[in-house]
């Protein structure tokens, strides 16, 4: 019989490599050396969820030079439906490329937030679009950020919310360096008319992340 679920997974669990342990105030979400760090980005089809995972993965793998596997799950719809991208970061080999219990969840819709927030590790972090959170869920801390509102207000396009979020992730959580994520975005949009808008959205994300880091430290 196939046995599913991951409660006893030894390789699926991070093994206390976080500097200083739990008691100390954490300075970094993603440690310098890690056996397994799980990120889940989730939302609806058409929100650029998989692109976000791709850009983040590229930045961490090629820019920051760490091992990353990025996989995804999506329904048959090209638009709408629930979509997620999973990233596993490791300084060793990645044996199972999907998240068991994310260390970091980024959620863009209520459906995604409510579905995945309960699975986040208690000492993990949830970053959710403020529109996605009706009732705070799960054991991990939820930080609400107005990505979509900002994208609409500043750029007139809700689609750049994910690029703002990428910038935010860099400065607020430190899981990716500003330089690497900027390179990934430049690479992706080089030679297109969208480059300028996306770089501006990224800068807006950097700025927002820094503000949040002061107001709501990790």
């Amino acid at each position: 019989m196939p046995r599913q679920g991951s409660q006893n997974s030894s390789t699926g669990r991070r093994t206390g490599t976080r500097p200083g342990g739990k008691k100390n105030k954490r300075t970094k979400l993603l440690p310098d050396r890690v056996e397994r760090f799980e990120i889940r980005i989730s939302g609806a089809g058409g929100q650029g969820i998989i692109s976000t995972g791709m850009l983040l993965g590229e930045a961490i793998a090629l820019g920051d030079g760490r091992n990353v596997s990025q996989s995804q799950a999506y329904g048959p719809e090209a638009r709408g439906g629930a979509t997620r991208a999973d990233l596993i970061i490791s300084d060793g080999d990645i044996f199972f490329p999907e998240c068991h219990e994310p260390d970091l969840l980024v959620a863009f819709t209520t459906e995604a937030y409510e579905k995945h927030a309960p699975s986040v590790k208690p000492d993990g972090l949830i970053i959710a679009d403020e529109s996605a959170v009706d009732i705070v869920m799960g054991n991990a801390r939820t930080v609400k950020v107005p990505f979509i509102k900002l994208a609409e207000k500043e750029f007139g396009h809700p689609i750049v919310a994910n690029i703002i979020a990428l910038g935010f992730l860099a400065t607020y959580t430190g899981i990716v360096s500003e330089k690497s994520i900027r390179e990934a975005v430049e690479d992706r949009f080089a030679g297109t008319k969208y480059l300028d808008m996306n770089l501006k959205a990224l800068e807006a994300g950097f700025k927002l992340g820094k503000e949040y880091a002061k107001k709501y430290p990790l």
Binding site: P2, R3, Q4, S10
Partner: peptide, 14 residues
């Protein structure tokens, strides 16, 4: 395992 998800190390160990 045949539910469309990848096998997990824990399942093989078990």
């Amino acid at each position: 395992r045949y539910d469309g998800h990848p096998l997990e190390p824990a399942q093989i160990v078990h």
